[in-house]
Design a protein around this nucleic acid. Structure first.
Lengths: 138, 138
DNA sequence: ACATGAATTTAGAATCATTCTAAATGCTAT
DNA sequence: ATAGCATTTAGAATGATTCTAAATTCATGT
């Protein structure tokens, strides 16, 4: 949880001018951990009375990704999902209810060898299946 | 490398009727390891004089995915990529040249804990960065 | 304050991968 | 042969994303 002053500092530390729209989006993403789609983000902010245009949502999310604040999660070729970059973690995707769970992963301790890699910028792990909740329901 | 008799048997073992189009696609995917897009698959087969309609390419790839012959690799929200399912492996994606490298990964030895998972159907690991070839070029 | 120019936001058009639809073709069994 | 079903097909429809060009906001110098 960060307040607006802290969010402003985060943006400035990344060389991003903290406009109202950018702060609203960063604040939203900072407290939303369900890996929302653009549509969800846009609708939620509109429901709060903060109507940014959808173009701004796209532009700003793309800017945040470029600056290393967010990452995009591509689960299917429908809508992209956005995830605030905190500590590294993996994802478990329930193919029944669609939920995306963050799961702790210590990438450095996996000792993965990628012989073709010159340098690594991002590490992603996705497991897919049925989550416990759905499994219990049968 | 499998011949057409073996590919036919593979399809039948999955409950898929081995039509000419399905065999051509399976044969192509069986010997193509660059994770091609639909467009590439369609163009390559057309260039070989085997013109399937694009709808058939889509339909058949989707069928193969459903039957566990292929998996889809979602790298970005542009075109999906298709990968023949052999032994488990990870992927390294070069953000410079776009190449996708298969990398050996022993998933069972990673000892990953996914507390929310009831059952796991598919495991994916993606690392992204710059490949050695691009890095050497500077 | 005010004007100027740059950055940001915006609405709507354009793009394009994928899915849908409905017709055509090909197979199988009687 | 024929009926019935599966498969293939072309083209239209869909929809997330990107593009474009105009409007607005912001910062700076006078």
């Amino acid at each position: 949880m960060k307040n607006f002053a802290e969010l402003t500092m985060l943006l400035e530390s990344k060389g991003i001018k903290p406009s109202l729209q950018r702060l609203l989006l960063l604040n939203y993403m900072n407290s939303c951990h369900v890996h929302p789609t653009v549509e969800q983000i846009y609708a939620d902010l509109a429901a709060q009375g903060q109507a940014l245009s959808k173009a701004t949502v796209y532009n700003t999310l793309t800017l945040f990704v470029k600056k290393g604040i967010l990452r995009i999660v591509y689960l299917d070729n429908n809508e992209a999902r956005y995830d605030i970059l905190t500590n590294d973690h993996g994802h478990f995707v329930c193919e029944c209810c669609g939920a995306i769970y963050d799961e702790p992963v210590e990438f450095d301790q996996l000792n993965l060898q990628f012989p073709e890699a010159g340098s690594i910028r991002q590490r992603d792990i996705f497991y897919r299946g049925v989550c416990k909740r759905c499994k219990d329901k049968g």
